[in-house]
Amino acid sequence: MYSRQTSPKEGAKVILGNLLSLAAENTPLSETGEWIANGFFYVVAAVAVAAALKMVTTKNVVHAALYLLVVLSSVAATYIVLGAEFAAATQVMVYLGAVMVLMLFGVMLTRAQIGKEDNLDYDHKWLGALVATAMAAVMGYSLWEYFGSKTMPDDMAPQRTSEVSGEIFSTFIVPFEALSVLLLAALIGAVVVARKD
C-alpha cells in the first residue's frame, strides 16, 4: 500500500482512509474492545445512579437540576455504547441544551430559594421509597427471568444517522409530521398559558 514515493501527507491520507474503512466495516468487537465498552458502561451507570439518587434527595432545587444534567449526559454516553450516535447527539442538544435551560428558567421564575430549602419533600417519604423499591424489585425479577442470559449480538453495528433518517422519512413519516404539529401546538399552548394578562 505504501510505495516509497508516497509523501508524508499522502501517507497520512492512506492511514486515515484505512481507519475510516475499518470503522465502516461491521467488525465485531474484540475481547478487549468489549471489556473496555463494558467497563465504560458500568462507570457511567454508577455515576448516573449516584447522581439520580442525589437528585431526588437534595435540598437545593438548583443542585437537583444540575444533578439531572449529570444523569442525562450519562444516558447519552450509554447511547454511544449501544451504537445510537444520532440519539446521543439529540440527547445532548435537546436535553442538555434546551430542556435544562427551560428547567433553570422555571426555577428562577418561580423564585425558588437559591440555597437550601426544607419544605421540598412530603413527610411520608418511606411510602414513596416503598413503592419505588417494590417497582424495582418486580421489574428486576421479571427482567432477570426473561432476559437473564441474553447477550447483545456479536456483530452489533452502530446505527448510522443516514439509516435512521431514512427510516424516519419512509416508515415513520406520518408520526414524524404529527410530531411537528404537536411541537407547534405545545409551543403555542405554552405561550398562551404563561401569558401575563
Partner: peptide, 25 residues
C-alpha cells in the same frame, strides 16, 4: 455485553424517578 445490564440500569433510573415524583412537593 448482556442485554440485561442496560435494562437493569433503566429500571433503577425509572424507580428513582418514581420515588422523586412521589416524594417531591
Amino acid at each position: 455485553m448482556f442485554l440485561n445490564q442496560f435494562l437493569f440500569f433503566a429500571a433503577i433510573l425509572f424507580s428513582i424517578g418514581v420515588y422523586g415524583v412521589l416524594t417531591r412537593k
